[in-house]
Design a binder for these strands. Structure first.
Lengths: 200, 200
DNA sequence: TAGCGCCGTTAACAAAAGATAATTTAGTGG
DNA sequence: CCACTAAATTATCTTTTGTTAACGGCGCTA
């Protein structure tokens, strides 16, 4: 079974033809991090510009609304990056909390350190680009689902595409990611059982 | 009054210290494009990897739902880039239509040509990065509004932040971008007039 | 194993949104 | 200036969601 480093080295080779042997300067600056269930990785108001590749586990990014309720923005799992976008992109304190839903293994790097490395090693640049584009595509896809689909349709699609994830994560977080309350999600599930079990 | 080229040159200087005199290789490959009101820039199913900086005007990206209704994903206006993300990021035919809502002036480049230029002129790389991050931040912000706010709150915020835009664009497109029907937006407006004209 | 807390479900009611159609308003072109 | 068309509003009715609270299951711990 491969480690994060293996995965990323492979990606770097595929994207830019960089040989694993030549990735030392990049990985020398990374640190492995372990989080236990329910441990916060980044808290609200923090100014950390840490960037981490998730080797194992699920992390939830959420914010506390004015009324005190939580709203889950997104879930990230193994093979993806996690970071405070407020802080990395806009240099603002994080408005979100990033918390492990399971035991999590991360490979972490400071974004400012990464920028320095990229200056001296532009051959790693495709990696940054790849992940930025991947995240953009992902978030546009979620956005699309909000303007084209009903909550029930969004849930059906999530089940179809990420069944494993839905089963790993408590329903209430799924609900809030869909933009509805847990009560409403429960009703949707009921409707799906009784009426059409049929597809998309 | 500045042109697109002025704007981008300034940005390149600010981001990477590239002097305007040294941007010729980049701008040599760009083409100015004019669209008239209601003209499509990219159609559904197209494989165009054109990327364009909007110098003037508003473009709407929308898709046709299964039931035949349109759903507006986003609006883009002067100072922003427009491109088929399906095609550029995933090399898939565009699922969206990009259409001018007003007369539009663009500065266009082929993305594959841009990639070639970036290979020989890595000093332009910060520009790509800047816009990718900007777009990511934007789309995450819209996503955030869907999980934290009601349609009425989203509309109030849009009014507060982009009043000019709301006034340039027909309500029905605003409605669908908010994830609701035009009828529903009209009711929200009515509620806002009668009851609390007040803030947030 | 008894008690506790969290989570998903259910219920009852209020509020909001969807669907459809009619009506008014606004903008365009002759 | 009128006529035509598209957009926005209003009305009516149905469906869905929000809100609040109660209930039951499940795991955890004392």
């Amino acid at each position: 079974m491969g480690t994060s480093i293996d995965t990323l080295q492979e990606l770097l080779f595929d994207l830019a033809g960089v040989l694993p042997a030549d990735t030392a300067p990049l990985f020398a600056m990374t640190t492995p991090v372990l989080l236990e269930t329910n441990e916060a990785y980044i808290r609200e108001g923090e100014n950390s510009r840490r960037l981490a590749f998730i080797e194992q586990g699920v992390i939830r990014a959420y914010t506390i609304k004015e009324n005190g309720d939580e709203a889950t923005l997104l879930l990230r799992w193994e093979g993806q990056f996690i970071a405070s976008h407020d802080t990395i992109i806009n240099r603002q304190p994080s408005r979100f909390i990033y918390r492990a839903l399971e035991p999590v293994k991360l490979l972490q790097i400071d974004y400012d350190v990464l920028e320095e490395i990229l200056k001296t090693h532009p051959e790693y640049e495709p990696l940054r680009n790849f992940f930025l584009m991947k995240m953009l595509a992902e978030s546009l896809k979620m956005l699309e689902s909000f303007v084209t689909q009903s909550p029930e349709e969004r849930y059906r699609e999530l089940l179809a595409e990420r069944f494993d994830l839905v089963n790993r994560v408590p329903d209430k977080y799924i609900a809030s990611m869909l933009g509805i309350t847990p009560v409403s999600l429960s009703r949707i599930r009921k409707r799906m059982h009784t009426k059409g079990k049929t597809s998309t």
